Simulated scan of single mutants.
Amino acid sequence: MIYQNFICVIVLLGLFSFGEFRKLPSFITPCRQNDPALNDCIVQQFEKIRPQLKKGIPEFDLPSMDPLNLPTVTMNHGNGAAVSFKADFTNLIVTGASDVIVKKVDLDLNKLKLKVHVYFPKLRIESDYKISGKILVLPINGDGHSDGNFTNIETKMVVSGDYEMRDGKRYIVINDKKVSLVIGDSKLYFANLFNGNKELSESTNQLINENSKDIVQEITPLVEETIGELVHKIVNQVFNIFPVDELLLPN
């Protein structure tokens, strides 16, 4: 769930790189379909747009991404080697997303496939939480404030689709998405575990952080699935509104 903020970056990437569908901001130079360096053009345009992420971009109907507010995320992870729990996270506040770096883009217009590799130097996610289950050998339960700090996050994503004709214009319909990610390091803290039992709470938080790599590895598939579903919904909505020749300037 901590990586959902990067989804907004992917949508933004698609919007500005695919061309002049509205009146573009003055700092954007639209890319063209026949540009042999199209992928490099997309990366270059993102570098122009990155400084605007903190305040938001009205032309794209995008609010500020830093901080980024998310309403709720639910996780239900069972029978894992390291973790087995159900957790609800609400009122999430994500900071650090505006420092995202797009390392590589590969857009194939014939196969309608977009591959993106992005890097987050650091992300901090604060939220209210409610959790019950097991982490490693210990039962865990509680509700309160959580604070997660994550560094060196490498995220790769593949989105593919098909063309659809409507009113004589071509639209893109997203039909598949895949997300994979690797976290360099993490530090987690859950306040008020075990109904405020300070000794149990501190020892459990210590155990969580001593084994954070194993715990993050267990929940990664759930995070990837969540990101994929959100991307499908958001990107499909964008492509449903705008014809492809408006999103990507013709030759």
Rank of each mutant, 00 (worst) to 15 (best):
1 M>Q: 06
4 Q>E: 14
5 N>D: 14
9 V>C: 07
14 G>Q: 12
17 S>C: 14
19 G>H: 12
22 R>T: 15
25 P>Q: 06
26 S>G: 07
29 T>Y: 11
31 C>R: 07
31 C>Y: 11
32 R>H: 14
34 N>S: 14
36 P>R: 07
37 A>P: 01
38 L>Y: 08
39 N>W: 06
40 D>R: 13
42 I>L: 04
43 V>W: 10
46 F>C: 10
50 R>M: 03
50 R>K: 15
52 Q>V: 01
56 G>H: 04
57 I>E: 15
60 F>C: 09
65 M>A: 14
67 P>D: 06
69 N>F: 15
71 P>E: 12
71 P>D: 10
72 T>H: 06
72 T>F: 12
72 T>S: 04
73 V>H: 09
73 V>G: 09
74 T>P: 00
77 H>R: 08
81 A>F: 13
83 V>M: 03
83 V>F: 02
86 K>Y: 05
87 A>D: 05
89 F>K: 03
91 N>F: 01
91 N>E: 14
94 V>T: 14
95 T>H: 00
98 S>F: 02
99 D>R: 04
100 V>Q: 03
100 V>A: 09
101 I>E: 07
102 V>Q: 05
111 K>Y: 02
113 K>H: 04
114 L>Q: 10
117 H>L: 07
118 V>A: 06
130 K>L: 01
132 S>N: 07
133 G>N: 02
136 L>C: 08
137 V>D: 04
137 V>H: 00
140 I>V: 14
142 G>M: 05
146 S>K: 02
148 G>K: 00
157 M>C: 15
157 M>F: 03
160 S>G: 09
162 D>Q: 13
166 R>K: 15
168 G>C: 12
169 K>G: 07
170 R>G: 10
170 R>T: 08
175 N>E: 12
175 N>V: 03
178 K>N: 14
179 V>H: 06
180 S>T: 15
181 L>E: 11
181 L>M: 14
182 V>K: 15
186 S>E: 06
190 F>R: 06
193 L>H: 05
193 L>K: 06
194 F>H: 08
199 E>T: 13
202 E>P: 04
206 Q>H: 05
206 Q>A: 12
207 L>S: 10
208 I>A: 08
217 Q>I: 00
218 E>Q: 11
219 I>C: 02
220 T>W: 00
221 P>L: 02
222 L>M: 03
225 E>H: 07
225 E>Q: 12
228 G>M: 06
230 L>A: 10
231 V>Y: 11
233 K>R: 10
233 K>T: 03
237 Q>R: 04
239 F>M: 10
239 F>N: 05
240 N>F: 06
246 E>N: 06
248 L>K: 03
250 P>K: 13
251 N>F: 01
